[in-house]
Amino acid sequence: MNKIVTNLEEAVAGIEDGATIAIGGFFAAGVPRTLLKAIIEKGVTDLTLACGSGPMLGAVNELEEMVKNRQIKKVIDSYGLFRSATKGSKHAFEQQIRAGEIELEIYPMGTLAEKYRAGGAGIPAFFTPTGSGSIIENTTLTNIDSNRKKKETREIDGQTCVLEYALKPDFAFIHAHTSDYEGNLRYRKTARSFNPVMAMAARITIVEAENIVPAGELDPDAIHTPGIFVQRVIKVPRTSFNITNL
């Protein structure tokens, strides 16, 4: 089964206005920057970027382009704001959030990881103790008042647990170190992070890989993401970026 596509247009084909796209990576590491550039080029709007831990703060140039072009409707994240409040308040991204032009929906990082896992694993919802004793017991965290939803809780083994739902994005953008023709993936070091679980969660998973090898080249015992979770793979150059100070 050959999943390799040869140009970026083909890689991001079928992504329309209003799509929800999971963006792999964690801050600067493992972010699919080339696929983000392709979506900027494509110019689709009303996008929901389903993130894990600030990949758009890591890929800040791509974020700035998308904010300038007003392509983002909503960001789901655990750490979506610049660490420095002073820097953040001056940034166009945060200004659009403050103005309610971009919705920011926040979950605890482990809850968000599990929402993707549940989405990929066919579990519609789950109870977690994370957030008990905080306002997360009562409400979703969002800057848009009217979108705050009441949460359900249940006492399990003497612990208040919060009901959280699976998250199944339309697409996932994944950055891998190596893919074979069949979309079996290996990641490198901490660039793994949210990538495998997002690859599992999305309906269509699109991978940018720094290296592409024939099937059989990767040790079957050492594959991080089995190809069944992957629909398209494109080869991208290994480009250097700054590990930004958030």
């Binding site: 750490y79 409040a85 959030i97 920011l104 997360i136």
Partner: peptide, 20 residues
């Protein structure tokens, strides 16, 4: 961080999972 002036959101990150 209330000084940020953003209602209803903040950088939760892994803090609640780590604490629980």
């Amino acid at each position: 961080n209330p000084s940020r002036g953003l209602e209803g959101v903040g950088n939760v990150g892994g803090s609640m999972d780590l604490a629980v």
